[in-house]
């Protein structure tokens, strides 16, 4: 990482741990619950957020000195919405199959609090390169949580990973199922995603005592 100064590198690594957008900043929860029943969807969503947040942070940062303070929320929202719609339209025209996978997420990306949150907290006050790095860092932090939750939900809920049966065949009763193991269908329901994230927070704060909340 020769081209990244230590401070810059921190912009990427901080959100992966101590300043994680989901578990510390409490942003981006809705999508973390809604689409993590399947590992593949978690990955697609993470990549989309990476793209929109990275690019969006740069655009807002470039515009930061000309946005009128009274309407800055609206402007931020319009920038995100426009970016997402452009991506959606271009995909629909040139990569139709991919766009079908993504159109489910379009709404979720626009309202993802992480994007707005980072615009407000960082891009509005920093230069484009730093904002880009911040965008990348936060998207990666988001991706880590999404992938962990997606991994457990899909594995324990359907016995598959990325669509491939890894524990055996539940209908033919091979593999683990031959011993009487049954898929925990409950894991596929969103409330379980909340509980898994709660457990992740537990692990994270046990490892880093500084994050524990005072009573």
């Amino acid at each position: 990482m020769g081209l990244l100064s230590k401070k810059d590198a921190k912009l990427i690594t901080d959100p992966l741990t101590d300043n994680n957008p989901i578990t510390i900043q409490v942003l981006g929860i809705c999508s973390a619950l809604a689409i993590t029943a399947e590992l593949k969807a978690s990955i697609v969503m993470s990549v989309s957020v990476l793209f929109v947040l990275g690019l969006g942070n740069v655009v807002i940062s470039l515009m930061r000195n000309i946005i009128p303070s009274k309407i800055r929320i609206i402007v931020q929202l319009i920038v995100v919405a426009t970016l997402v719609i452009i991506v959606d339209l271009v995909l629909k025209a040139f990569a139709y199959e991919l766009s079908k996978t993504l159109s489910v997420f379009v709404g979720l990306i626009i309202t993802n609090c992480i994007i707005m949150g980072r615009f407000e907290a960082f891009a509005l006050g920093n230069g484009p390169w730093k904002s880009f790095l911040d965008g990348v860092g936060n998207s990666l932090g988001y991706a880590v949580i999404l992938i962990i939750v997606g991994f457990f939900r899909e594995l324990l809920g359907s016995g598959t990973l990325l669509g491939i049966q890894v524990l055996g065949d539940p209908i033919e009763k091979t593999g683990l199922y031959a011993f009487g193991y049954e898929n925990n269908g409950f894991m596929l329901l969103s409330p379980m995603a909340l509980i898994v994230v709660g457990l992740i927070i537990w692990v994270q704060r046990s490892r880093n005592q500084a994050l524990i909340e005072e009573n």
């Binding site: 809604a34 689409i35 399947e38 489910v104 596929l188």
Partner: peptide, 10 residues
């Protein structure tokens, strides 16, 4: 479908 949950309704 247009927007069902991936892994579930999808």
């Amino acid at each position: 479908h247009k927007g069902e949950t991936p892994g579930l309704g999808a």
